[in-house]
Design a protein around this nucleic acid. Structure first.
Lengths: 280, 280
DNA sequence: TTAATAGTGTCTATGAGACATTATTCT
DNA sequence: AGAATAATGTCTCATAGACACTATTAA
């Protein structure tokens, strides 16, 4: 059965005369917030536990706009790719790894977020096991580096630092009316020295991560194969931005991990048993 | 200080020679899942409680592609609008209301999801108080209608019906490896008679709503000013797809509502006290 | 022994699940 | 009285918070 539209065209005829340029067109990029856990080699002390930090991968822009500024790894979506495929390709390029945890985060589309033209950014959140990336990232020519990220609520500040360069992104709790409710959330309050609106994307990524580690198992994508419970607890504490009580923490995660019988070594204190993740 | 890129151009020079058509371009549309609560006027019985249903607003397509099929209300994003502004404009057009609850849902970008060209759909979730829309929607010329939505897990089916037309969207629980985890979620399993991939968007919207009513107050955007606790409980039950126990439910929501002293009337049973939402 | 961390025990308070009971209205 | 729903009481069980305590290693 052939269907005609109000201009008496069949679908085939319609598609033939359709002019893709009749409507405004724009570009679509993917930007990826890649989280990992870093240990500063300078602070390693065999008497103490490693000082773990949440880290993100940034790349230095080598062309206009924002030349020389740090940005999230990203790229344009190819015409034959799905969004997930584009995100996976970009991750593979930057980290050399292929089966990372990855989820779509949010889509940013302010008209002037890019000075070249209207570019929409579909952002992705990715998590990478700290024991794996070192091999790959350093091989890449591109100027990329891991930056520690910390949300300091008291100071209204998102601190992003790699030792050499530090960004202090001013943030504030904004209340927005949404229908009958007033919803309060952290927002970037002032322009920072990062490229584009990437400071806002990083903040949203961190908040998504914070929300999801409470209700899912995604932390284990940040962990090496073997880890101690205290190590895991510290990562929760970094991401949540608050201290947790050990017994309660143990009870909560007990069902997601299994004993290995192996123990940590070469530390100036009681060794801890190493566990591994096991999905329920 | 002027910065030069590898081709020795300043940012101003770079932007002047930048050809927006050098990269693939595409279009961006917004599609909105507008939820509300419907009561079928035919089943009203003064001895019984209203039979409430979760409903979404669909519009019948008046042109190719998918001419004559039902689709989510949507439209293209204007060049000077943010995504939120475009979503708000579309909502205002379809419902006549301006301050609805609205949040970005997910962005869909499969290369062939639209036969015209590459069109990315950024979807929004919106909630509308059932006592308000009736005034407006019927005034609109466009062929739009409220469809009941129900996720029937046992049958692996998403039922979307307005009495005349019923869509039975086949769904299945798919397990996907994401990094170290296997994540299982409902996915559309077979093509349905809805336009584009809108069946998948509706499913994702319903699942988002299901997740969010457990941890936030968004249900109240679906409620009229005054409601009984049982009425509220039934809406939770519809959205969650399971029965709840009344005493536990009361305890859970007690802190979000306040007594009004008013009571329901003209019913063939004990009247219920009417409550109203109060944000903590 | 001491520093540092690992790991356990247990009391209490809170909240969820389950079921039973009482209350109120209209026909 | 009987149908229908509203609203409360209460027992149990599971979990979360808080704190104290014991264990183990290397220097």
């Amino acid at each position: 059965m052939t269907i005609y539209n109000p201009h008496n065209l069949t679908e085939e005829e319609f598609l033939q005369q359709y002019d893709p340029n009749a409507f405004d067109r724009l570009s679509l990029s993917i930007d990826t917030v890649i989280f990992s856990i870093n240990v500063d080699p300078q602070t390693i002390n065999y008497r103490k536990l490693d000082d773990q930090k949440l880290a993100i991968l940034l790349v230095k822009r080598s062309d206009h706009p924002f030349l020389g500024r740090w940005a999230l790894p990203g790229g344009f979506v190819g015409m034959q790719e799905t969004l997930d495929e584009a995100a996976r390709r970009i991750l593979q390029n930057k980290t050399g790894l292929d089966d990372l945890y990855m989820e779509q985060l949010y889509t940013y589309g302010a008209p002037n977020r890019d000075p070249r033209m209207r570019i929409i950014s579909c952002s992705y959140l990715s998590l990478i096991d700290s024991s794996k990336y070192q091999l790959h990232v350093s091989e890449l020519v591109e100027d990329s580096a891991w930056f520690e990220v910390e949300l300091i609520e008291e100071k209204g500040c998102l601190r992003i630092s790699n030792g050499e360069t530090t960004f202090l992104v001013k943030i504030e709790q904004k209340s927005v009316r949404k229908g009958k409710q007033i919803i309060t959330s952290w927002q970037v309050a002032a322009e920072s020295k990062l490229a584009f609106d990437h400071d806002a994307i990083i903040l949203d990524g961190l908040l998504r991560l914070r929300g999801k580690i409470q209700s899912t198992d995604i932390v284990f994508n940040l962990m090496p194969e073997l880890f101690s419970i205290t190590q895991l607890q510290q990562i929760y504490e970094i991401i949540l931005g608050q201290k947790l009580l050990a017994p309660a923490f143990r009870r909560k995660i007990a069902h997601t991990i299994v004993e290995t019988g192996q123990y940590s070594q070469d530390k100036g204190h009681r060794p801890s048993q190493l566990f591994t993740y096991q999905q329920r």
